[in-house]
Design a protein around this nucleic acid. Structure first.
Lengths: 244, 244
DNA sequence: CAGTGGTCTAGACCACCAG
DNA sequence: TGGTGGTCTAGACCACTGC
């Protein structure tokens, strides 16, 4: 253990740590900017003289920090900055995004009546096996799919809503067409994992971490009339809440 | 591809999927309950006829979903249920936990004056290189460390606070000893990754996903007087916010 | 000190995306 | 169809935990 020619300047200098540090440095100095694509994993492993598994481990740890993201079978990219999102303002997604000088788009996946899942029956105070309107959409920020949303509505409060243009703001639609004004609402925010349709819609691996926002909206009389399930890419959003 | 003796009942029946499914089933049926320890990775890999890397991948994906958690070099455990936490109520952690029929404890890590990091100067509207009081604590739920908190205070508003018992509720202390009553506050919630002291305090691997809650508190005159940085185990908490 | 997870090597084949 | 990440095998040694 004497006089070996080694890097001893940095403690715990494992291969994965070296890769993380090198990539971070490139991002800090701006040599790699938001949206840039990284070289393929095989190339990185040759570059750093290690195996793909080790490279992947370093990349995944940067992904967990929100510094990088991965598109399934397409490659690794530097993450854009987060969107500030205040779930208390039922602000229109497009307006919110425009305020932050970015570009929004919405894709409708499905809109139909379905039998409500048990959790929605509970939240909306519906009897078992009730039918609800379900609207599924994917929202993109600067061309990148960042959020999958599922809206569950009491059908009797929203007649013929399936005939409407459902790529616009639903909040606006509720107010304009159905004269619905909200009273209190309740949110729950948990960190979860992408699976099935959510993972597919957001181009995420099964099991990638996501931020799950569930909201139950009540009318002015206190009746729960709809609930939303939003699944955000964990690196795409910063939730902001102000009290008073 | 004809007549091979295979499981064909389930699509995408990869080794990792089989392991996930088997473990989930054991948890659903209660054969594995909250807090239970899983067999060692090596044993699981023998059991499922696969390698440790594959087993680990399955375990990590259940960890991302919040179903399992891992204590560094100690083993894998079934995750307890989440704590409901409403950051709008500046409710005392111990009271909150007791309300949910669970047990809380607090460990003081450090309390001293330090030079404020730039982000805290910005948030509290302090000049560069100001000194602040920093209090670092770890909070446990039923004996498991679930949250690391760092409190940053304007020192002139909290004279001699370092002489106080800092394992109790700080909110209570502020009010009782310093007569401080809050006006508005602002939260930010982002999903991040554990590193350094946070990872160590929560017995997490470097890079494990966490939920980061930052709060800036103002007095009744609108002056920012302190800010908190909370780092929650991502599987330990459900954030609940009610509006109106 | 034994047990456990943390990390790593050096390959292999598969599944999906884009040209 | 070629390139990419997704997944997997079959080992190895290290570092920390707790007896």
């Amino acid at each position: 253990m004497i006089g070996l020619v080694q890097d001893v300047g940095v403690r715990s200098d494992t291969p994965a740590t070296r890769i993380r540090r090198a990539l971070k440095e490139q991002m800090d100095t701006g040599l790699l900017g938001p949206g840039d694509k990284l070289p393929p994993e095989r190339e990185l492993s040759a570059l750093f003289g290690t195996t793909r598994i080790t490279v992947k481990e370093a990349l995944q740890s940067l992904e967990a920090q929100g510094a990088l993201y991965c598109e399934d079978r397409r490659g690794w990219f530097v993450a854009p900055r987060r969107l500030d999102y205040n779930p208390m303002y039922r602000s229109h997604f497009h307006a919110l995004v425009a305020q932050q000088q970015r570009e929004a788009s919405t894709r409708l996946i499905a809109a139909r009546q379905e039998v409500a899942p048990a959790s929605t029956c509970q939240r909306l105070g519906l009897p078992a096996l009730s039918r609800i309107v379900v609207i599924r959409r994917v929202r993109s920020l600067d061309g990148r799919a960042v959020m999958y949303a599922e809206h569950h509505l009491r059908p009797e409060r929203f007649p013929d809503i399936l005939m409407q243009d459902l790529t616009q703001s639903l909040t606006g639609l509720y107010e304009r067409v159905y004269g619905i004004r909200y009273g209190r609402s309740r949110f729950e925010i948990v960190s979860g994992a992408a699976s099935g349709e959510v993972a597919q819609a957001l181009a995420l691996r099964e099991g990638s971490p996501i931020l799950q926002v569930t909201r139950v909206n009540h009318d002015e009389a206190g009746v729960a009339i709809d609930c939303d399930h939003e699944y955000w890419r964990h690196d795409a959003v910063r939730i902001v809440v102000e009290s008073q």
